[in-house]
Design a protein around this nucleic acid. Structure first.
Lengths: 188, 188
DNA sequence: GCAAATTAATGATTTATTCAAG
DNA sequence: CTTGAATAAATCATTAATTTGC
């Protein structure tokens, strides 16, 4: 029940990790939901001070908590996004499997196109001859996309294939329990 | 199902501006975060085609969306940076310099607790001392907070001043990156 | 009922990107 | 073109839940 002996911290002895109390978690989540995503140093200190009345806590715990919370929020959102992509089959058909989880791909395909990082391969050939029918309204656009087009960060190693509309979601090596199933398209 | 009645675009009738559907926004954000910052004309066309299944959309909408998004990103970063620099000037008195940015700290302070010249081999083995061990290992989070005085298991009670942990400003986009009013320190 | 075994959450580290000064 | 600073993604590691056999 609620009177569980929630030890707020290091179990007394030595170097275990922080275990937040329910109160601490509640307050942290409230702040997060209230809009605080990445607290500043000062904010972290103040939060730490306030939460310390519920149990042992350090600034780094607060820092880590927000980092992890935000990251896992994004993770969920990204998964939903991926599901949406699949659900509506938004993939370009010609290169659909080019963004499969890396381990699946490298397992069966010995293609050297993608290696490991490849978070951004939006490489496109861009024939500037293409019919830009949409810029009829926008005179400004014409020059912007004419030449110095995709200033992508860096291209890992992607041969000029076709357009890829999907950022890869790299899966973990043994993350079979909770990741996406990209093959069977098991839509709920 | 997510068949919400979000009438994606009112562009159809008169001259109203484009109202992206949640799906469209999600997908666009996914592409942006996936590395696409400045789509080429071809990319814009393909994106437009794909997103058009969620609602009316034109190429210029996509173009403007990316332009605005990138600009907003840069603006936000600039603000953050400015806030960070100001933050240095005004800080709590007793522990002010303990979490100054590293470049400032390693530049002038000869505090041997955290200053190891080489970042490569920082691995200091701190058995179970929880004072400041993590900032030695962790160049990442670096700088800030660090309750440097880990001698106290519980945080000392801070005077209940006007603490604004919760950004009541209701600005979701604004991450509340600025610091609040400081006390004694004067800014040159 | 209970503990060993297993699985899910989540705190803590490490690594890779990113933007913009120099 | 290089580098500094900061961050977010990926990963590792430990704790809590839970399952399972007795």
């Amino acid at each position: 029940m609620t009177s569980v002996p929630v030890k707020a911290t290091t179990t007394g002895g030595g170097g275990t990790r922080w275990c937040p109390t329910p109160e601490q978690v509640m307050l942290l989540e409230g702040m997060y939901r209230g809009g605080l995503k990445t607290p500043t140093a000062t904010q972290i200190q103040q939060i730490t001070a306030r939460l310390s009345i519920y149990g042992k806590i350090q600034g780094k715990n607060v820092f880590y908590w927000f980092q992890n919370h935000k990251a896992r929020d994004r993770q969920k959102i990204r998964k939903k996004l991926a599901a949406l992509y699949q659900q509506h089959r938004l993939y370009p058909p010609s290169l659909d499997h080019s963004f499969l989880p890396l381990h699946h791909q490298v397992a069966g395909i010995e293609d050297t196109t993608v290696c490991k990082p490849m978070v951004s391969n939006w490489k496109v050939d861009l024939p500037s001859d293409q019919t830009c029918n949409f810029m009829c309204d926008c005179p400004l656009m014409s020059m912007m996309m004419m030449d110095h087009h995709g200033t992508a960060p860096y291209y890992p190693r992607v041969p000029p294939k076709t357009l890829q509309l999907f950022p890869v979601t790299t899966t973990t090596k043994d993350d079979l329990k909770e990741d996406e199933q990209s093959t069977t398209t098991s839509k709920p």
